[in-house]
């Protein structure tokens, strides 16, 4: 499982998994992009925009939520879905990421915010890292 949708009455929740923290970030981004426009990244063959972001946070959970929030903001401003990410620096508390995006016309879902509610990066029984992420739609 990379990620799965879990029921949430008002919003949309993802349960995301990764063998490493970096993979968890990548999978979370894939999940978010598929909420924004289902399957869009599967067919992307060119990139129209490139952005570099740097995020620092007190914990890896906050880092993940803040990373996704930053990408979401850029997605809205640049009208690009960032299907590919390359981390030039990655630690538990700081990331520097190059984002490669492709222009799109409109979303399937408009994500208002990515919440800290119930987000907690932890090891699961399989030894992988996982967390819930609740998106405000």
């Amino acid at each position: 499982m990379i990620y799965e949708f879990v029921p949430h009455i008002a919003d949309l929740a993802l349960k995301v998994e990764g063998t490493t923290l970096k993979e968890l970030f990548v999978n979370s981004l894939k999940g978010m992009n598929n909420i924004l426009k289902d399957g869009f990244c599967d067919s992307v063959q060119r990139f129209d925009s490139q952005m570099t972001i740097e995020i620092a946070s007190e914990s890896r959970t906050e880092l993940l939520i803040n990373f996704l929030s930053e990408v979401l903001a850029l997605t809205n401003v640049q009208k690009s879905i960032y299907c590919r990410v390359y981390f030039s620096y990655f630690s538990d508390k700081r990331v520097v990421a190059q984002l490669f995006g492709t222009w799109f016309c409109c979303f399937d879902e408009d994500i208002k915010g990515i919440t800290y509610h119930e987000a907690h990066v932890r090891k699961n029984k399989k030894g992988n890292l996982e967390t819930y992420i609740i998106f405000d739609l």
Binding site: F5, P7, H8, I9, A10, D11, L12, L137
Partner: peptide, 8 residues
């Protein structure tokens, strides 16, 4: 007030 999630 919602009673069903969007996916449901």
């Amino acid at each position: 007030g919602r009673q069903l999630s969007r996916r449901a």
